[in-house]
Design a protein around this nucleic acid. Sequence first.
DNA 1: GACGGGTATGGAATCGTTTCCAAAGCCTGG
DNA 2: CCAGGCTTTGGAAACGATTCCATACCCGTC
Lengths: 355, 355
Amino acid sequence: MTASRRAATIKDVARRAGVGVATVSRVLSGSGAVSETTRERVLRAARELEYRPSALGRSLKTQRTGTIGLVVPEVTDPFCAELAAGVLACARTLGEHVLLDASHDDPAREVEIIDRLVEQRVDGVIAVPSGEPAGWRAAVRAGVAVVFADRAVAGLPEIPAVLADDAAGVRSAVEYLAGLGHRRIGLLGTTTTGQPYRGDPGVREEAFRATLADRGLTPDEDLLVRARPGRDSAFATAAGLFQRRPDMTAVLAATHLLGEAAVLVARELDLRIPGDVSIAMVDDVPWAELCDPPLTAVARPGRDMGYRACEVLLRDPARRERGRPVVLPTELLIRGSCGPPAGMPGAAPRSARTR
Amino acid sequence: MTASRRAATIKDVARRAGVGVATVSRVLSGSGAVSETTRERVLRAARELEYRPSALGRSLKTQRTGTIGLVVPEVTDPFCAELAAGVLACARTLGEHVLLDASHDDPAREVEIIDRLVEQRVDGVIAVPSGEPAGWRAAVRAGVAVVFADRAVAGLPEIPAVLADDAAGVRSAVEYLAGLGHRRIGLLGTTTTGQPYRGDPGVREEAFRATLADRGLTPDEDLLVRARPGRDSAFATAAGLFQRRPDMTAVLAATHLLGEAAVLVARELDLRIPGDVSIAMVDDVPWAELCDPPLTAVARPGRDMGYRACEVLLRDPARRERGRPVVLPTELLIRGSCGPPAGMPGAAPRSARTR
DNA sequence: GACGGGTATGGAATCGTTTCCAAAGCCTGG
DNA sequence: CCAGGCTTTGGAAACGATTCCATACCCGTC
């Protein structure tokens, strides 16, 4: 009995209230002058019919969908999830919907996603880009506003980005390790499948090198390895490094996946943390605290980045024009996974360094 | 130079190709007969104008948006993220878009989300419901197909659900613990903010009780505590239980958040795992393996559940009608966090671990 | 040579809104 | 009493697609 054959339209409401469709629209959108009595008649009719205005009709006419696209490499990645949460939070306060998709860091898939978002006529897109500029250029040409988060794409200065200060984060971690007395510090870095793009990964590696150089330590290229995306490669790469260089006393993992791999490999090789090897990583994830010992990590404000990216996209067109990246600070969270190197006299973490 | 003032429409393409709009539509949608020469002319015109058909126009006419809604309590929750990944994967194969939102387990917010999804005229909704039936009833009345995942709502038998076999999962964990010799087993359970709904939580608690009873153990109500959602309550609840009952030799955490709390509290109280207390939890999350010792957990197939829910929603209307829940199996992953109870004769409290 | 059957094609209606514009009603002041 | 200015209202034209229906054409057959 209640199940109406077809959803009520504005015409149905108009007929029932005995007014024109224009009046109904005015009442419901709140714009324009309507007499109190008609307003009430319309509202009652709408209520009785359980009328829900169709976003399709409205969007078609107004040329705004009230929807933004969000493209992340992988929803299950904790950092991406935080970022998404931030975007969702901001979008909600602005009354926007979020269309989500995962690129799996595959440029081809990314291009396809962009295409579909353009078809959907989203008002804008927030993306953790995989690196290929062509698709994004096409999106901009099609009139979609784009904001990058977490990574920028080389050759697209016109697209604004919200980034974490990864360079400073890596620097603080390396300085911390060097300050503890470490001389042979490894870096578990990342590489993409071969696209010549420089965003995140390059920055971290570069900061690693620069910090060591600043301290008068020449970076040992053999201690600097790169894993491809994915757990398997992370584990294999970490295992390779640990086995090849037993003299390494500390390692910095450039991602949480690499941090995970480092912990697992160390455990497998029966290396104590931080007794035999100190481990730090970029990205603070829930398990960092559950680890034994808890892992020292560079926290990056994923949620804030998402929120900020959404703000830039929707309410800061000025900044969008200028296109200078927003850079948010990182924080080194010192936990128990780093100590002085094994050969160091005086194993107590805070003991005076004999130089 | 390239930035066209306005996106090209089907009319622009028709004009440029010198044909009618109907022909353009036929060519692009692949339906209907078109001569080879016109087809090519149309395709070329479309390419030259960088034409992208508007999903709005199409959806309005066809009454299908090609979009489904996904409502989860919290995107950053690893289980929800897995579920979302599954939904995304299935949606992609079926060419559907996914509109995401987070309810934070707040019924009021959930109702609001539902409302907005109905306005968007989504083809269907997949939800991990918070328990309030009214909003979902309204959605169904509005003609939206709904499938629940992970939880069902009491009083809505007409809405199909895809669930994990939590009862069997809890049972296997409890039997495992009892089999190791434990007699005083605690349960860290959950409760909602007070809504009288029974879904998940009730099932787990009930299975816990039933399994103990089956083994001739009377469940000790004092060992059965319930936390409200959120990290703080989880931690407080776990701390309370551990301190009140030092004689408890094993504990089962009903969620990964409670598992986390249990590990943290045990560490704080200097209880060795599994020497002093055995810990197992429901939900296998990445950190379970990184823990020291790795945590025994009941794995629930989040991704599969999401994939399955999407399939039921979009390609299995028959099952949707019948409305019987799909139940997917769980698996007990035995790791190192459980051993015989401390007082057990023959069990070396210090080192020996049955593996 | 007319007819029937098929293929290609374009016009126009339709989906559900918003919004422009004109009209209708009512009041006020000259 | 009427001109002119409000307020309130409804009709109709978009927005951009799909699709029904009619038409035009071609060809083979009787």
